[in-house]
Amino acid sequence: MSDLALAQTDAPVRRSVRSEGPVARAALIGLALLFLALVLGFPLVSVFVEALRKGWDAYHEALVEPDALAAVRLTLLVAAIAVPVNVVVGLAAAWAIAKFEFRGKALLTSLIDLPFSVSPVVSGLVYVLLFGAQGLLGPWLKAHGIEIIFALPGIVLATIFVTFPFVAREVLPVMQAQGAAEEEAALMLGASGWRTFWTITLPNVKWGVLYGVLLCNARAMGEFGAVSVVSGRIRGLTTTVPLHVEILYNEYNTVAAFAVASLLALLALITLVLKTLLEWRYADELSAGAKH
C-alpha cells in the first residue's frame, strides 16, 4: 500500500472520530447563537432602536444639548489624562517586570492586577474616604482650597484606578515573550539605554501598547461605578457621558438617555472592531494571553 493511499483514507477517519453528527452539531451551534443573540445582540440593538424611537431630530437634539456636550468634553478630557498616565506607568511596570529578575516580582504583578478585582464602587469609595469632606485629608484640603471629590481630580483618580492594569497587562506578556536578546544586541552595538528603548523595545511592543490603549480608553470613557461615587453629578460640570445617561434615564427622558448611550455603544463597537483587527493582523505580536 502506498503512503498516498494511507493519507487519503486518513482524513475522513479523523473527522468522524472527532466530531458530532450533523444534527447534534447544528443544534449546538443554534443554541449557542440563540443565547448570544438574546444576551448580547438584543441589548446592543435596543440601544439604537430606543435612541431613534422619536426620529432623527429628537436624537440629534439630545446630542447637541449643552449638558450633553459638556459631558462629552469632560469624558474626553478625563481620558486624555488617564490614558497617557496609564501608558507611561504600564510601560515602566512591564519593563521592570519583563526584563529583570527580582524578589517580589510575583507580588508586584498581583498588585498591578488588583484593581481588576475590586468593585468599581469600592474604587470610588476609597477616594471619598480619603479626600471627601469628612475624609482623612478632607479638612486639610478644604483649608487649602483644594477640591478633589466632586471635581475633576477625583474623577481622573478614580478612572486611573479602574484602568490601572490595562496597558501593563497587555504589554507585559509581549515583552516577556520577546526576551532581552535584542536589547542586549543594541547595547553591545553601543546604543544608550534610552536609544535602546526607543529604537528597539518600543517598536517591538507597539501593537501591544496600542491594544492596551484601546481597552484602557474604552474603560476610561465608559466607567460608571467608580466615577459616579466621586463625581457628585453636578450637571454640566462633573457629569461624564455615562453619568449623563443615568441622569436622563432617571428623569424618564428615555429617548435622550438612549441617544447619548448610543454614542458609548458606538465607541464600544469601534473598540471591538479595532481590537479584532489588531488580533487578526498581529496575532503573533500580541501574545495568546492578550486575548482578553
Binding site: L33, L40, G41, S46, P120, L215, F258, A268, L272, K275
Partner: peptide, 29 residues
Amino acid sequence: VDAAVDLPFAMPTAVAGIALAAIYAPNGW
C-alpha cells in the same frame, strides 16, 4: 461571533444597564 463575545468588555456598564432594563421591562422585547 467570536469577536462579539467581547462586547460586554467593551460596552460601558451604564449603557448595558439601561438597555437590559428596557428589554426586560414588562413592555420590553
